[in-house]
Design a protein around this nucleic acid. Structure first.
Lengths: 191, 191
DNA sequence: CCGTTTGCCTAATGGTCCTAGGATGACCTC
DNA sequence: GAGGTCATCCTAGGACCATTAGGCAAACGG
């Protein structure tokens, strides 16, 4: 019976919804089968195993995130680009916590190109600032780390105790902008 | 007391070792029981359930990390303090990946005080820089986010494609030091 | 010593992942 | 349209895991 129009794509989207609703660790073969009203075993015609399913969700998330971040970047530069990119990033993590968590799976060959897209986008931001080429890799890592660290800690409740987290977020972006505009020379390794 | 000198403390340490060896997601009641040569069910005299066990590992990790970071901070200030603290942080995550992952569990009431210790330590670093009090919370969040984001991405392989990650780490710390020394004023209406 | 507590046990339930093998419909070829 | 192939679902069952209930015997407190 090819009755239900189940495809790998629909399974992946449903699994992503499951992740956002229940948390990525609760993305499970059984839960997904339950949602489609079929037996666990039937899913194995479409996916290899649980790991495969989760990696698909991870790839979906990384792609969606890169799409949104790319859109946010379009037509902007400098501080505007930085803020728009960062906001897109944080928005996505807030709206799709399960997908975002999926994106933090260890980088596999299948997700490597998605990861590269992210790093390319961050390089695009840097074009609005006057950094020597040799510093780009460090600046990209600084930005990625800060964005990812912030939204992770925020989501995990690490900031709960005091103060408005959005105000801090704005302030952190301000400071990063200033840092990029006044990027200190690298004294250890002169070009 | 029964035969083997099993205590909650020893269980927690063994679970932490398990986490470092197999990954935090593989810290399991059965695996722990296996390690002690007893039955799964027997562990439930010592722990409430799996969640309880994992939270204990989380608390252990956060405490150990705060201890090491606190030691690193002793007798230092300014840039030295920043670098020593950050290195202690990254070292711990590298040497104890499973424990570190445990520490990223959502903040529960039981771990709230450990989280506060971390934030207190970061405030200590800021004493070496001339920041207005109102900016401290933002700076603490910037530092936390960057440290956590960096070691997370590094561990997940997000930096693989190019370059020495330790060199970037040093450079990022340099830049953060400069940023803290030249902390930009907070303008109510930016730009 | 004797009773209570403690630390382990066996037994059992139910959830999960996954494999093997079977049935049935959709579709294609003749 | 008959027969073959393939895709998509199924049932059955094994292995592993978390957890509860209830038992037994060693340790301990009086």
């Amino acid at each position: 019976m090819g009755r239900a129009g189940i495809t790998v794509g629909r399974l992946t989207v449903a699994a992503a919804e499951l992740a956002d609703e229940l948390g990525f660790e609760n993305v499970t073969v059984s839960a997904l089968a339950r949602r489609f009203g079929i037996r666990d075993a039937s899913l194995y015609s479409h996916i290899r195993n649980l790991r495969d399913l989760r990696e698909r969700v991870s790839r979906l998330a990384l792609t969606e995130l890169a799409d949104r971040a790319g859109d946010a970047l379009a037509g902007r530069s400098g501080r505007d680009a930085l803020v728009a990119f960062a906001d897109a990033y944080r928005d996505y993590a807030t709206r799709h916590p399960g997908r975002y968590a999926a994106g933090q799976l260890p980088v596999s060959p299948a997700t490597a190109d998605a990861a590269r897209r992210h790093s390319d986008l961050t390089h695009t931001i840097l074009r609005g600032y006057a950094l020597p080429d040799t510093e780009h890799v460090h600046a990209v890592r600084l930005l990625h780390s800060t964005f990812h660290g912030y939204v992770s800690l925020e989501r995990a409740g690490g900031f709960d105790h005091s103060g408005d987290t959005t105000a801090s977020w704005r302030r952190v972006l301000d400071v990063l902008d200033t840092t990029l505009r006044n990027w200190p020379p690298n004294e250890a390794a002169p070009r």
